[in-house]
Design a protein around this nucleic acid. Sequence first.
DNA 1: ACCTGAACACCGTTCAAGT
DNA 2: ACCTGAACACCGTTCAAGT
Lengths: 231, 231
Amino acid sequence: MPTTPSTTARSKRAGSQLTPDAIIEASLRIAARGSQDAFTVRRLGEELGADPTAIYRHFRDKDELLLSVADRTLGEVLDSIPEGLDWKDRIRALAAGSLEVALKYPVVGSAMASRTTRRPHEFRVVELILGAVMEAGLTGRDAAVHYRMVGDSLLAFVGQQAAYLLFTPDVRAADESSWSREYRLVDPEQFPNITRLSAELPEVTDEQIFHIRVEALISAIETRARTLRET
Amino acid sequence: MPTTPSTTARSKRAGSQLTPDAIIEASLRIAARGSQDAFTVRRLGEELGADPTAIYRHFRDKDELLLSVADRTLGEVLDSIPEGLDWKDRIRALAAGSLEVALKYPVVGSAMASRTTRRPHEFRVVELILGAVMEAGLTGRDAAVHYRMVGDSLLAFVGQQAAYLLFTPDVRAADESSWSREYRLVDPEQFPNITRLSAELPEVTDEQIFHIRVEALISAIETRARTLRET
DNA sequence: ACCTGAACACCGTTCAAGT
DNA sequence: ACCTGAACACCGTTCAAGT
């Protein structure tokens, strides 16, 4: 028995040689478990059936691995966007796909909120947004600035929602109940607006907020394009 | 000499008794050092001249301390907003003040991007934003949803910029140079839009992006108020 | 009543040793 | 050429012991 290695966890990985792709896929499996499984190099080693430090043979450090993992998830986002949409619906589809994927892999969505992967799938996302703002009628500096507005805003929005999923249940519960607890108990004299809207504030959903945020981005592009046409 | 305690680091804190306020102020001093000094309980003990674990006598855990520290920084934001502004300029002043304070205490700005302090200064910020959207003409559910759009968006925007300041210099340098490196080298056939805007994209500044993001929020409120007036 | 300090259960990463 | 595993320099938090 000790002489046949075929039944150990490690040898089950058929070939037992680590590859960048295998490490990225193991990372995605861990990331998909959300807050119940931290994305650490030690857990990654477990998932791969290898020593935790083995990944350093294939990635300079954890940050470089994260960028590769993130670029892979951008592939999922791109795959979710149908062909033949006009510029507004392309931005809407990108937003919806980004949110879905960020909530599927919260640790990735959260960590990338102020980053760039600098990798192929990100190039395609940039190309897509630039195509949309140019189809809307923007050029040169206007196109560049409005691309950044859309790209950075989408990253910030989905990153914000993704980060929330990583908090422990008790922290999330305390934050969520604040509208019906702390904000219900404020002094009506000092905070008349909060008091007046105390019934409506807890009712607002993340989906509503995300929707009007995305529409605000589209409106901003439209308004700028109209201003340019009129002058 | 050993009998007089007046020259030790600890006794310099006049009374040598820790208070929540002293801990919050020490936290702000560390946070203001940005990426060159991590905000850890051990460093906090150093800053206070006390044992690292002494803070657990005054705060349940590091998260509760963070919420108190964050609420204190919201006080700085509120102090920066002049009286007598109309609703648009109040939102602009809140945005500018939030960004300034978040960049002054990056670890706080970053950590609060998807949180609520549930504390007095935050109540005042919420009251301010609600007052602005109601002055613009929104009521009930519309006011609640647009308040959340403004509040959550400002947190996301300033948190995104603050988080960036916490990365190591080499990570920041690699991200910043991507427009003039990786994005300059893309295939012009496959990425015509990126190629066409390769000169403009690196020129866009964080200030420009922040400005149009805030104006987009104001426009969204204005547009909704006009729609309601017209029906 | 409050503070100390050892201890616990974690992190990412390096490097000499193995195969 | 690649993987292992001990080791290092960190984390936040608990708890028995001190004063």
